[in-house]
């Protein structure tokens, strides 16, 4: 029998705990496919963060460390500095990376730390049941912004790719989306590129993947995919924000 579709080797057989309509599972798969295609599974050490992806250590079939909330880039730095020939990636959500872990991500990027960061932005704290995140959109209702996020009280959502692009350290910064097949394929390419940058010792690479949280957004899976496309992408434009390997005129 001909195999036409199978699980990447870099994923375990564990059943994922993610909710219906959540794209973490898809993004895990994209990371695993990138690892498989580069043949680096046995050379890779992943760092799980705190949030919905906290159990990532059970899903990736490579050595894993589970980090404290927001600290994954520091933990990854510790690993990479003593094992510079190994591949090190973090997998972080928006609360973890853009709020409590802002210092760690900015300084890892500023140092040009040679790691790969997969940043999943779904504009909400999912694991703790839907609180306002640093990336929650203006007017978006959450458990802790019940009348909608207001600028006068909580300011503006943080655009991480744009923010980190002001630094010299990063080699590659891209924002992609996971709401439909075309975008998922683009996201997979960006994630692979972010691992290649590390392999080529180019320095810090991050892919921000716009994602959904249908349960905490209070939507069906299909509604949440549409909401992402209609509301998140206008505020968080997709594209490559930095690529030191891009040629003039690319």
């Amino acid at each position: 029998m001909k195999t036409v579709f199978q699980k990447p080797e870099a994923l375990t057989n564990a059943t994922m705990h993610y909710c219906p309509g959540c794209t973490h599972g898809v993004i895990h798969r994209l990371v695993a496919e990138a690892i498989d295609s580069l043949g680096i599974r046995e050379q890779t050490i992943g760092v799980a963060s705190v949030g919905c992806s906290v159990f990532a250590y059970d899903y990736f079939n490579c050595d894993m460390q589970q980090a404290a909330h927001g600290r994954a880039p520091a933990v990854a730095t510790g690993i990479k500095r003593v094992l510079p020939e190994k591949m090190v990636f973090t997998y972080q959500g928006d609360g973890d990376l853009a709020s409590i872990g802002m210092a760690e991500i900015v300084h890892a990027a500023a140092r040009g730390e040679n790691i790969t960061v997969v940043f999943v932005n779904n504009a909400i704290y999912g694991m703790t049941s839907g609180q306002m995140a640093p990336t929650t959109l203006i007017g978006q209702k959450t458990a802790t912004s019940p009348r909608g996020r207001s600028v006068s009280e909580t300011g503006y959502p943080i655009k991480m790719c744009e923010l980190l692009a002001t630094l010299e350290g990063p080699s590659y910064l891209a924002r992609v989306s996971s709401h439909d097949t075309r975008h998922i394929i683009q996201a997979g390419r960006a994630i692979k590129k972010a691992f290649e940058m590390q392999q080529q010792k180019k320095g810090f690479a991050m892919v921000e993947v716009l994602s959904t949280c249908s349960v905490n957004w209070g939507m069906t899976p299909i509604e949440s995919m549409n909401w992402l496309a209609e509301n998140m992408i206008p505020y968080y434009p997709l594209g490559v924000y930095k690529d030191i390997t891009a040629q003039e005129g690319d």
Binding site: A67, A68, A74, V75, G78, V82, A103, E104, H107
Partner: peptide
Amino acid sequence: QAESEVSAINMVYGAAGT
């Protein structure tokens, strides 16, 4: 030199884990 004491101890965590 880490960006903070918090980062320094988490770098220790990562390196000790290896």
